[in-house]
Design a protein around this nucleic acid. Sequence first.
DNA 1: TTCACATTTGAGAATGATTATCATTTTCAT
DNA 2: ATGAAAATGATAATCATTCTCAAATGTGAA
Lengths: 133, 133
Amino acid sequence: MNNIEYKTKQRKMILEYIEKNKDKQLTAYDILQNLYLKDENPSIATIYRYLEKLVKQGILKKNYSEKKNAATFEYVNKACANHYHLKCEKCGRIIHLSNEVFSDLESKIDKKYDFEIDNVKTVLYGICNECKN
Amino acid sequence: MNNIEYKTKQRKMILEYIEKNKDKQLTAYDILQNLYLKDENPSIATIYRYLEKLVKQGILKKNYSEKKNAATFEYVNKACANHYHLKCEKCGRIIHLSNEVFSDLESKIDKKYDFEIDNVKTVLYGICNECKN
DNA sequence: TTCACATTTGAGAATGATTATCATTTTCAT
DNA sequence: ATGAAAATGATAATCATTCTCAAATGTGAA
């Protein structure tokens, strides 16, 4: 009936692995494969359960990878909640936009459409300079 | 060995249904359910196969619905390839941005990051005026 | 430390979307 | 009408994810 979160070895291992791979989009099986050989490694069910819990806590963001045909999870960098991002469709590189680049658009859209952009969910897709060549 | 596309009754039915529902995100089973009672209705396998074909042709865009736990397909409106869109996270409403609102940002980003935004894939998420209240 | 109990885990079954298989049917150019 | 290529349907196979439930573990109190 309480709402206590037990600290188990499995959860620690999972979270540590995620934190070591903050920049990656991990599937449940990615994590399984990497913890596989360790003592008291978590089962796939535990991994899925804990990932969903972390999503609810806002620690992870859940996505879906067409290519992998599976859900992927990425670490939510709180510092990134303030600015927008460009994501290259080819190499996946993420560029953090300086605020001033976007602020004009935000206020224009607010005035004209009375629409409040969500800069956590919004991603601007395109092709980065390296991939153009 | 040829690349001919045969016109079959099943494909006509599927495409007609999609065109009647241009504004919706359809799953394969949505289509199945609606063609179900008709003569020579397509099987689920045919629907999946044809949907993927339409995606390859650029007629549909494939998405993934967390809620439905299934792939969804939406009609690609060619006219929308020229401008950006706002999408309300609550009601799903889509607002078509007038070009001038975005053009500033595009050139700023191009200059500063040498990044070319893809206005087909990019969607700006947020909350629309109606949902604010 | 030990107890009582809520929570978590693991193994495997169940689910459900999507894809593959392959024999049969249909399309269409000739 | 014929034949080759393409499409279809029924169903099996695949595979990610969720469910089930007995057993194990974490936690706070005594």
